[in-house]
Nucleic acid binder design. Structure first.
Lengths: 204, 204
DNA sequence: TTGCAAAACGGGGTGGCCCTCCATATCGTA
DNA sequence: TACGATATGGAGGGCCACCCCGTTTTGCAA
């Protein structure tokens, strides 16, 4: 089964028509998801793309795969942000800022959060670099630095933090003031419910 | 539209056959939900209950209503737990314990978390005491006490905390070691990611 | 340029789901 | 017991995911 060239240097390159349809589907999916969320009808996406539903299913055997293709760019942007933040003099601040960015992206791309989370344990060995592992790797560095600066407990993993962020986004995704709430809850989770005897966490 | 007698002392009591079917449906739904989660097929539930699908829809005009009927007992148990904990000499501990109990219930009743969250803003005025408001009220007391004991920041609401708990459960719901992870993440969220310069939160 | 096998396509079928209509059956009461 | 109010459930409509397989397109090689 052929893959998007960005994923793996294809053993055999996709045929021209296949690639054309692939791109059309991803574009249509992005539109549909923006309108209707991650549960958008696959048939409608195919229709929008001017493609038979079978073609969509051939290119993307699961909804998850399609979501990953749609979100790849945004995930790459997130990874780039992480790379930038690695230079921040305050590693704790950098980590918090980045988690905030993850939350913001998740909120503005309905379904990203859920999508990333499922990727965590669907055990899909054929897909080398899922969105999930990309983000995990990007965040791991930031967490490692924060830990060295004593700004994060040693028993907290990057997986924990991402799960927390995704959980929050998932929870407030369809509330009216979702973004604001996500921000609040994330800050809350990072600093704990205790009254601030400790250094108050900077807002991001 | 008749209601379960537990909800409101019925203006006119349900007919015997109606009540019988109502109970059968709830029982069947509980089984199906335990097996397949909150997204269980309504038609299968009707089939299991030996009832036409129209009957199911007549008794429960939305999936949400059915879930609430199924979970009412458990929610009442949760509220009772809260009442017990109100006597705990350590209000901070009581609150944490109760949130842990909420998490455990949510995890062991797949879909409870999501169900409760949706109830938050579906604006269903006909249903007097939804699960959501029951739990919110129960938790509000515990939080108020914790706050007075300076064990919780004043800017944290019970809605925030429940959202956090539900978010976490939602996030780890279908992971193999979900319950353990939920526990970890909840503790993490309650104490914050910072290294413990402060009183370490007791495990619940 | 042309021929041809491999690759890709998509219409249409299957089966599932949610939900509604309405002719029929059941219940409670006078 | 008889009758009106109440409740029932099967059939059907609309939507969906997913697959089968006859047809078309592509790219390579002669």
């Amino acid at each position: 089964m052929p893959q998007h060239s960005r994923t793996t240097p294809p053993a055999r390159p996709m045929r021209a028509d296949a690639r054309r349809n692939y791109d059309r589907i991803v574009t249509a999916a992005a539109e549909a998801i923006a309108e209707h969320g991650a549960e958008a009808s696959l048939e409608e996406i195919a229709r929008r793309a001017g493609v038979g539903s079978a073609t969509l299913h051939r290119h993307f055997p699961s909804r998850q795969r399609l979501l990953e293709a749609v979100f790849r760019d945004k995930v790459e942007a997130l990874c780039a942000t992480a790379a930038d933040l690695a230079a921040d003099p305050d590693p704790g601040h950098a980590l918090a800022t980045w988690l905030g960015a993850v939350a913001r992206h998740a909120m503005s791309n309905r379904g990203l959060a859920a999508s990333l989370m499922r990727g965590a344990h669907d055990g899909d060995p054929t897909l080398g670099a899922t969105c999930h592992t990309m983000i995990t790797n990007a965040g791991a560095d930031l967490l490692a630095r924060a830990r060295r600066a004593n700004a994060a407990r040693p028993d907290v993993s990057i997986a924990d933090l991402l799960k927390l962020v995704n959980a929050i986004c998932l929870a407030v995704e369809q509330e009216p003031d979702g973004a604001a709430q996500a921000d609040r809850l994330l800050t809350l989770a990072l600093t704990g419910v205790h009254p601030a005897g400790e250094t108050a966490r900077r807002r991001m």
